[in-house]
């Protein structure tokens, strides 16, 4: 399959890329790993006249500790996230989530920034990013701004990045104290996309009481969402099995669950509850150490 013809640009800096984006506007698409965009172009669902490849821009691929957070460059590949010793030690759920995206060849090229800017409703990383309360750094002609994760996912494949901006960095707060997390999904057997995926991060105090909880759900609706009702059922409580089950029972509330080829609203709502419970059980077990 051949995409429609396009002009290819490989800028050498963020500034140059922003210049091209400002020049070609809606006629341009940004190319990161290309594992969502290129298939869409081959199916002619996307027909950009100008393709701006970000691969040659130096300095967008890194994972480093930076002021209470782990800063991840937007062009960092899923494999780099999967195999990062720093993340495995400090934010292991990010590595574990990256390790179940697509397949090894996809992970070698697909990027964290590309995935989060594309915002496929069945992508894995959005759930984990929501559970961690991450932040997004966008660069535009007027400089950089930071967007909180709760303001990031706006709708179906739609995010807060503006048309003249580039997502350049994702910032994940470092875990404090007794914290544990997990991401679990029911994968589609062929595509490995999440039919439903749930990520949970919980922090416990010395007495075992939950002081902080983050729960993200992906796959179920048109975008990944925070499961606020689940979180509210956890904070301030001792996370025994009954509490976890009662909280997870609310995992489909506030999620605009959509029926699709994978399942009915009832079925996918059930998956939300089951996978939220399993993710919470694993997260609590890890937090207790």
């Amino acid at each position: 399959m051949y995409p429609a013809a396009f002009e290819y640009h490989a800028p050498a800096s963020v500034r140059e890329a922003l210049g091209l984006l400002g020049q070609y506007k809606d006629d341009a698409k940004l190319l990161a790993g290309g594992h969502s965009l290129v298939p869409m172009m081959k199916l002619r669902l996307a027909q950009p006249k100008h393709l701006i490849d970000l691969k040659k821009i130096p300095g967008l691929s890194y994972i480093k500790e930076d002021g209470g957070a782990i800063a991840i460059g937007a062009m960092t590949t899923h494999w780099q996230v999967e195999s990062s010793a720093l993340l495995k030690q400090k934010c292991p759920v990010l590595s574990e989530t990256a390790a179940v995206i697509g397949d090894p060849a996809v992970r070698n090229l697909g990027t964290i920034g590309g995935s989060l800017a594309h915002a496929d409703p069945a992508a894995d990383m959005p759930a984990t990013i929501i559970a961690h309360g991450a932040e997004f750094v966008c660069e535009g002609p007027k400089g950089r701004r930071t967007v909180k994760v709760d303001d990031w996912f706006l709708g179906l494949m739609s995010t807060a990045v503006k048309e003249d901006e580039l997502l350049v960095e994702v910032r994940v707060p470092l875990w404090a104290g007794k914290t544990g997390g997990a991401y679990l999904k029911f994968p589609h057997p062929a595509s490995r996309f999440a039919v439903v995926g749930a990520a949970a991060v919980v922090t416990l105090d010395g007495a075992g009481k939950c002081t902080k909880a983050g729960v993200g759900i992906t796959g179920a609706g048109i975008k990944a969402v925070r499961a606020r009702d689940v979180e509210a059922g956890l904070v301030g409580k001792n996370l025994d099995q009954a509490t976890i089950e009662a909280a997870a029972a609310k995992a489909a509330e506030g999620v605009d669950v959509q029926a699709d080829l994978q399942g009915s609203v009832e079925y996918k709502s059930h998956l939300c509850r089951v996978f939220a419970r399993r993710a919470l059980e694993a997260a609590v077990k890890r937090a207790r150490g």
Partner: peptide, 22 residues
Amino acid sequence: TSQCGACTILMNGQAVKACNLF
């Protein structure tokens, strides 16, 4: 469609699907 892997090659030492790259 970048699912079957029949086109897998090594690019700079990493396995990639050559049908999904220009």
